[in-house]
Design a binder for these strands. Structure first.
Lengths: 235, 235
DNA sequence: GCAAAAGTGTTGTGTATACACCCATGG
DNA sequence: CCATGGGTGTATACACAACACTTTTGC
């Protein structure tokens, strides 16, 4: 059906006996109220950080290693999203995609081989990577509503306003302060440190941390690792 | 670190330059009020139906083809679950797993190379396949609560009691008839065929079908294919 | 005293749950 | 007339959205 002479045909089993497998990570952070994603330079386009898994490690471990090596980030959260099969440059590839979250200081964390890009004004990207990114953002926004992953975008101690800024940056819309604080308190995952933070000519903000034992996030979509031990909770 | 002499070491890149990729499907059906899963004979254990993807097709297409070829089922629903990396028999393998649903008649649909097993009394299974199965069942049960996938376990025309039996079989618990019917009607995805079905010494059951235009299920976890077109709905 | 962010309550509206009886039919 | 499954309504509790003002501080 396809002509194998003029260019390599990645659907020809003689040319490609098995697919290449790679792992790509969509790493988000929030800095100064803006949602950012880590992208690597790749010619004219930008691309998602990617790597190859090795036989001795799980795919999750490959994602973690990828972030540590290429991005220089100790990620706070890593979740597998989806796997796709595609042909790029006559190379049959199966790509396993991940969503990752990291805390960024005010200046943003430094990256090794990647750079932070504002999600509101993305550069040109490879079309496959662009679809992966769109899906990752869709999942991240949906999960904010029924999980506690937002905390992974914050330092260990934070104010409720800090947390609200995370929600507003990811969702790209304002949220009501009173309803927001009520729902956070009702979730029961925070405990006050006795401390406050004074940083301007206004009332100091109370600081909070996670409650120990609630670091196990209440995900409706449980992780693979936890699926055999505990069931789904209906909170 | 590992001794490569006495047995093949699947973590040695010289032995295995890249992983094998396979696709495994957890196919459920409900027959006579029992939740069943399709398993293949494999020596002493049973195993999930599996196949290899080809470069020209998507992974989803590979799953569909796998069901059509090996199982003889035209599945009604197929959803990717998770991908894992594992070593079995010194073969490094990346497995992409799928959840599938099919309608079974009263006798259950016939299978080519697989057999239906009652989920309540499963035979011995390969440990990797067992974990995949556990995860699939966990996801299926969770998704019943906020999606319409249950309809894929029914023929085109069905009674509300038929539908309730599906829910009870999958969830393995009774549900309240009035609340169930109210929530189904409120979802607005059904329309009555004018028909009824008489099949015993009792009042005949009204028959329903999907409303056209609502075959696009309201998934909180949107499929990969739809992620770039439409956002997440909050019903 | 004023600017600036922190913090706090009430009300309505919709949604989920618990619960018991009459209806139509076949035998 | 009776056994069987089909079909219906109401009261209550809880979750969520809309909405405005007082408090504490730095300058």
């Amino acid at each position: 059906m396809a002509t194998t002479d003029q260019l390599l045909d990645c659907s020809d089993p003689l040319v490609n006996p098995g697919p290449r497998v790679d792992v790509r990570v969509v790493l988000f952070t929030v800095s100064a109220g803006r949602l950012l994603v880590a992208l690597q330079e790749q010619g004219t386009c930008r691309a998602l950080p990617l790597g190859s898994p090795s036989p001795a490690e799980s795919l999750d471990a490959a994602g973690t290693r990828l972030l540590a090596d290429h991005v220089g980030i100790a990620e706070r959260y890593l979740e597998q999203l989806y796997s796709i099969s595609h042909c790029s440059e006559d190379q049959w590839t199966v790509t396993v995609t991940y969503l990752a979250l990291a805390f960024a200081g005010d200046a943003g964390p430094s990256l090794n081989t990647a750079a932070w890009c504002d999600v509101g004004s993305l550069p040109e990207m490879d079309s496959v990577d662009r679809k992966i990114f769109d899906y990752a953002l869709l999942r991240l926004r949906a999960k904010l509503g029924y999980t506690t992953i937002a905390f992974h975008l914050l330092p260990p101690s934070f104010s409720l306003s800090d947390l609200q800024i995370i929600y507003e940056a990811v969702l790209d819309r304002e949220v009501d302060k009173r309803n927001f604080r009520r729902s956070i308190h009702a979730a029961g995952v925070l405990e006050g440190t006795g401390l406050t933070r004074r940083e301007g000519s206004h009332r100091p903000a109370g600081l909070y941390r996670f409650r120990a034992g609630h670091n196990a996030e209440t995900y409706l979509t449980p992780s693979w690792a936890s699926s055999t031990e505990e069931g789904v909770r209906n909170p």
